[in-house]
Design a protein around this nucleic acid. Structure first.
Length: 195
DNA sequence: TAGGCCATCTGGTCCT
DNA sequence: AGGACCAGATGGCCTA
């Protein structure tokens, strides 16, 4: 696997739509990418092919306002896609930062990050099961991966704790396991609720 | 120079 | 209808 310690190559999120031809980012002067290319005349093969189809559609649609509107919507769509991918990359970066790995000076690739994360979770799960199986009836033994079941157990535990200390603070700090689990629980719920 | 990784564009499809 | 999501395609950067 190769080293991937590179500075971010990218331009600012608005550069494609706002840059003038003279303001192109030097490191990607002729990228196949380019909302910029939509207005600057250069296209990659794919973009050219897609552009040919788009041109046919534009002719069918007619000229003038509708065509400009179509181009504008495509640029806006590109911008949203960039933002979406940036958010995805931020999530990858956050994941990298919580996964222990050997070469801290070497940035993990996306596939490496996902693979290590999966293994890390499995490892932690196995460790927890080993340490507490005697107190978690029903969790040990053969069968499917215990992850969800394990979470259910902890979630149940937390609910009991919250009931016991209703109205009072839990007295759980971020450094304690319960703190992490509580955050995990909260995050799971927020995901479920789509927030 | 080949191969891996990445960012981006693009059009199609799904979802709200 | 419009935005989110997805996958294919492409070219740039980097390392071995």
């Amino acid at each position: 696997m190769k080293t991937k310690n590179r500075p971010p190559r990218r331009r600012t999120p608005t550069q494609d739509t706002e840059a003038t031809p003279g303001e192109q980012t030097p490191d990607r002067p002729q990228s196949g990418s380019g909302g910029s290319e939509l207005t600057k005349g250069f296209r990659s093969r794919t973009a050219r092919a897609g552009g040919a189809r788009a041109e046919v559609n534009r002719r069918r649609q007619g000229s003038g306002g509708r065509r400009e509107n179509s181009v504008q919507r495509r640029l806006e769509s590109n911008e949203r896609e960039r933002q979406r991918m940036h958010k995805l990359n931020n999530a990858f970066q956050a994941l990298r930062e919580v996964i222990p790995h050997v070469r801290a000076d070497k940035k993990l690739s996306k596939i490496e990050t996902l693979t290590l994360a999966k293994n890390y979770i499995k490892s932690l799960t196995a460790t927890i099961l080993t340490m507490s199986s005697s107190r978690l009836p029903g969790l040990e033994g053969p069968g499917p991966a215990p992850g969800p079941k394990l979470y259910q157990h902890y979630h149940h535990q937390q609910q009991q704790q919250q009931q016991q200390v209703a109205g009072a603070t839990l007295g759980v700090t971020e450094d304690q396991p319960q703190g992490h689990l509580q955050r995990y629980s909260t995050q799971i719920h927020s995901f479920r609720e789509g927030s």
